[in-house]
Amino acid sequence: MSTMEGYNFAYLDEQTKRMIRRALLKAVAIPGHQIPFGSREMPLPYGWGTGGIQVTAAVLGPQDVLKVIDQGADDTTNAVSIRRFFARTAGVATTTDTEAASVIQTRHRIPEKPLREDQIIVYQVPQPEPLSRLEPSRAETRRMHALAEYGLMHVKLYEDITRFGHVAISYDYPVMVNGRHLMAPSPIPAFDNPKMHHMAALQLFGAGREKRLYAIPPYTSVVSLDFDDHPFRTTRAPHACGLCGATDSYLDEVVTDDQGGRLYVCSDTDHCETRREAGHTGSESPLQEAAQ
């Protein structure tokens, strides 16, 4: 293990990590309930994943293998920086392979491959309060959570259906956790919501600026809000991945030229690569052709 001199394991001091772990234990005990914690200044700005990083630092051990994704990709600036941050401050092994990882920190996606009991997924959360846009008073939203008064959230869904004919929330789609707490699943696409339901892995959420943690223990019920006559439905772009041909993964739309050319590719880069290594090809595969 070659870690940076002068820093504690995983950057945060042990007292801070203990404080965060205590908050996490409480969060696990009350699925979906927001727990306040003493969020620390981190060597990157709020909004870049400080909450997620603190949670990761608190749960990381020397034997862990860390994967970091941003919008599903392992190779974006944020993902690379955070992975390197922990490689340098904790000396842990890192990977881009979902299956090989024991801790996965994520922004905006859940990997396509189902997670296992021996894995932990850590979400970076900008706004932990699902009612924040509807009820400005934080004291009032706390009371609403305490009394499980969630009619207001349905008012928002009602308004969407009235205005657009369907619920127009495409990401951070509110969920009921364990039949009790309304929870913001962080800005993952609604497409990923079903993956949270009865997930085998422990799900941890950290909001650094808002100083809140929450969690979903393994195999917990996570239900997306809906109406009986307007049931929750996932949507994805009606295409196959241009690189690996997958028809069931969440796709990014990539503009390829200034002639209006577009390419739809898996947003989960590891998923896409794994499929291509197994011989799957997309109908277009322009990048592969160019490489040949």
């Binding site: 008064e149 009619g151 207001l152 349905h154 008012v155 009602y158 308004e159 259906i161 009235t162 809906d226 109406f227 009986d228 006559d229 307007h230």
Partner: peptide, 17 residues
Amino acid sequence: GGNVGERLMAQGSRHYG
């Protein structure tokens, strides 16, 4: 409509129609 419906939704009505 949302204003009138809010108390119904608060009581647990889950049928938009």
